[in-house]
Design a binder for these strands. Structure first.
Lengths: 321, 321
DNA sequence: TTGTAAGCGTTATCAA
DNA sequence: TTGATAACGCTTACAA
């Protein structure tokens, strides 16, 4: 492994001079500089970042950890984070939960953004401190040095469901995703709005999916067997809505005439298929999460949760207000 | 910043003893061990990985770099890499091309997997050596310490197009993605098969998309204006096929009766919509890429390109053999 | 069972 | 303009 010393020896200078050349300092004579550069080339020298980081004590790097590979919107979030970080000249390490602990290390990264419901609050509380701030995107925590950047699921889902009520839908069903804060919030908004409008909701009209299109398809088949078929199916995300619509149509049930269906997320598919949904600004979510993290790294003491709003997109799988 | 020395001093032992405790060595007395552990807790000590890595010289970490956030299959690839890596007890850093150079450092990572057509061959050739092997997933390179793990686009697309020929389609159009090895290969297979079957192909039946659903939609509108409407549209990926199908159907053109459409990738959408396509095993691509990389890290000298086969999925947007 | 000391590759300080 | 030296936090012979 070629190091600064090897270069120094071969170029007949001291290690510090080589270091100065590498870092573009001005205190090096022109001829020396050229000689050192040539030797670096000859020897295929590459600086060892670990040595540098150890010495300087700063990596100017943040980390994003996630562990769900099933939904495309993660890529939009990454794009958002990535662009903000580039702007601020930080580097970004993305990792999956297996390595979260290892890279969540003050020596390695200056802070991290988490989107992984399997990481317990207690772990985050233990890790966070003023030298290692954390942003969480999947829950609300009000703890020093941890900031939540989350979508205001509740408000958006309320707007959607109230819209459906105004459209005179009466018999509602809900297709939930797996157990998570997102799902709870969406369902809470759904049932709150129905209650406020005195619309009864029977428990057996709650169907359990897991956010996949397949589960939407399967649940829709169940719904078709139910005695009082709902006239609107509110799904916790677009993939399930998509699966449900496919099942209905395959069985001659018209959407939205026989049953209206709506989703959440405004995925590419929802746009394509004209599914009524809630537009979640994922790119912005990532961008804002990165911004909040960098601000904390640079000293901000604002740890209040940041709620991101989203809008209902009325399309052709429901009536339109 | 609390280090091993601080712990040692407070516990009244030497740094090496603390190190031994941290690393679970057996040469530490029970009482000393407990005392040290208590002090580590009290002081909120966390090992500095950079120091450790510098000393041991090995990070047991590989890197994956990509820079396209538009297509979901990247997540499947990441999942594949991630699972193999977990199996072998390596860690995985994912990064985007802004930071590729920084993390592509022998001190930081032991090798890397690249899927980013914007990285030039020359850069890879400069970086790769026996201590830093590289896997590329988007091109074929036959160079020591660089191994290509790529989908056999050519063979699969040939199978698809030959199938269409056998189904008696006569008037072919091709909807390409942006300029890339993938796109070139798919088109080459397409035109080779037509040539072999003496089916003429007019240049103006090549349409330029960019792999997005939107571009498929737009190009389909163009196709509808053309004098001799093709009876089959072969798209370089599913998203474009999906967009095209939507445009056709919105305009009363039936798929596959009036025009057949097929894609490439076998995305979730293609499954849902019943689009004829080529199934690219992305999870496996990732898994195999990681496997090849780890093998090289551990000394393998097999740098021959690894071609991954894929299969045609006949569905309802074309006739079925 | 515990401690001493050298060294991983780099940078920073200060002296030459 | 250059060089000697110490230091970053850790591990690891080897000595005690």
């Amino acid at each position: 492994m070629i190091g600064i010393k090897d270069v120094a020896k071969k170029a007949g200078v001291s290690p510090s001079t080589v270091s100065n050349v590498i870092n573009g300092r001005t205190n090096v004579g022109e001829k020396t500089k050229e000689r050192v550069q040539r030797v670096m080339q000859d020897l295929h020298y590459e600086p060892n970042i670990i040595g540098k980081t150890l010495k300087t004590g700063s990596s100017r790097t943040i980390m994003f950890s996630f562990s769900d590979f099933e939904r495309k919107f993660y890529l939009s979030i990454i794009r958002g984070i990535s662009e903000y970080v580039k702007l601020k000249d930080y580097d970004l390490i993305i990792c999956t939960n297996k390595s979260t602990d290892k890279f969540m290390n003050r020596a390695f990264t200056n802070g991290c953004i988490l989107l992984d419901r399997r990481t317990p609050d207690s772990f985050l509380i233990k890790k966070a401190n003023k030298n290692y701030p954390i942003v969480v995107m999947d829950r609300i925590m009000e703890v020093p040095n941890i900031k939540s950047v989350v979508v205001n699921n509740y408000a958006s889902e309320r707007a959607l469901v109230q819209g459906l009520v105004d459209l005179k839908y009466k018999n509602f069903a809900f297709l939930g995703g797996f157990e998570s804060e997102d799902n709870r919030e969406r369902f809470r908004a759904f049932s709150d709005v129905l209650k406020e409008n005195n619309i009864p909701f029977k428990k057996d009209h709650y169907y359990d999916g897991d956010y996949t299109g397949k589960s939407g398809y399967q649940m829709a088949r169940l719904i078709m067997l139910s005695e009082h078929r709902p006239d609107v199916l509110v799904c916790a995300n677009d993939e399930m809505a998509m699966g449900a619509i496919r099942a209905f149509r395959e069985n001659g049930i018209k959407v939205p005439e026989d049953i209206a269906v709506c989703g959440f997320d405004d995925t590419e598919t929802a746009k394509m298929m004209g599914i009524t949904t809630v537009d979640v600004p994922n790119y912005e979510r990532g961008y804002l999460a990165a911004q909040c993290l960098v601000e904390m790294i640079e000293g901000s003491k604002n740890f209040d949760p940041f709620l991101i709003n989203s809008n209902v997109k009325w399309r052709s799988t429901t009536l339109i207000p």
